[in-house]
Design a binder for these strands. Structure first.
Ligand code: SF4
Ligand code: SF4
Lengths: 137, 137
DNA sequence: TTATAATTCTACCTGTAAGTAGTATTTGGA
DNA sequence: TCCAAATACTACTTACAGGTAGAATTATAA
């Protein structure tokens, strides 16, 4: 009942970058050290974030990364989607599937509300919302 | 953002057993076929359920399993706990940890409510509550 | 021009959840 | 008694997320 490490790392990375001034480049070593994420794993994630155009990379000496979009335009849910970690409407709390209407267990209706809240939280929270709160570690 | 297969299977197994008459023995083959759970994996789970006294097993020919407790006394959360799958109070949605009070991100407060609802759902739903709803597959 | 610091690529290793195989043990019925 | 049907035990295999290694590429500063 948790997000994947990859998603967690990606959110923390992007939230940290959102804290920085727009034009400032941040390199992989700084991110890895500050956020306690294994360097090699982090670079793998960064490359992915570059590929989907969330982040711009500058290669070579004095290079680094910076966010490509406005921080108010990057939603947590977008990040989760990258790693297939967002909550789908039809997702069953028991992982069984879509027991539509006629056949539903007692958990079904109870699951609706927390599911909705989680979806809402992920969809409506942008990097702007979670930046600047000092929760880095 | 899902329960482990093992937890899911355990819940389905116990919910199915809860549907049956008290005294009726159910064997592993029936459970595996009915619930579409790999036989060998199922027996492994059953042995675990026997060890923690949720289920009684009768070995030998004409043997099988039956629930050991009243179905109103077995909470979903008890099952999740067996496989370390229940939601802890301090569990962070980002898997970071307990950024207590002073240092909290914007997700923190939003996570509180769905977390609480999930915990409540798991803690207050018994097998009795989810039995007899015909959601077997 | 060259050394260096950075990202990127390809490939591999590791740990854990999920699943499988085979054998031992137990027990009732023919 | 002996076979068959059931659970229990031990050990292995598979799949995948998480993590690592090293070389290739890129670009700047000196
Ligand atoms: S009825 Fe229960 S098992 Fe079926 S999809 Fe809904 S929550 Fe899952
Ligand atoms: S403040 Fe944010 S990162 Fe820290 S424990 Fe709460 S939800 Fe997790």
């Amino acid at each position: 009942m948790q997000l994947s490490k990859t998603s967690q790392y990606a959110i923390r990375i992007l939230a940290y970058m959102a804290d920085k001034k727009d034009s400032q480049l941040i390199n992989a070593a700084e991110l890895a050290e500050t956020l306690y994420i294994p360097y090699k794993f982090l670079t793998k994630i960064m490359t992915e974030l570059v590929k989907v155009d969330l982040v711009t990379s500058i290669r070579g000496r004095e290079g680094g990364y910076k966010l490509k979009k406005e921080i108010s335009d990057i939603m947590i849910n977008d990040i989760l989607d990258l790693f297939n970690d967002s909550i789908k409407d039809e997702q069953c709390v028991l992982g069984i599937g879509f027991c539509n209407g006629l056949c539903k267990c007692a958990l079904h209706d109870q699951w609706m509300k927390p599911k909705f809240l989680l979806q809402k939280m992920f969809r409506e929270s942008s990097l702007e919302d979670i930046a600047g709160r000092g929760c880095k570690k």
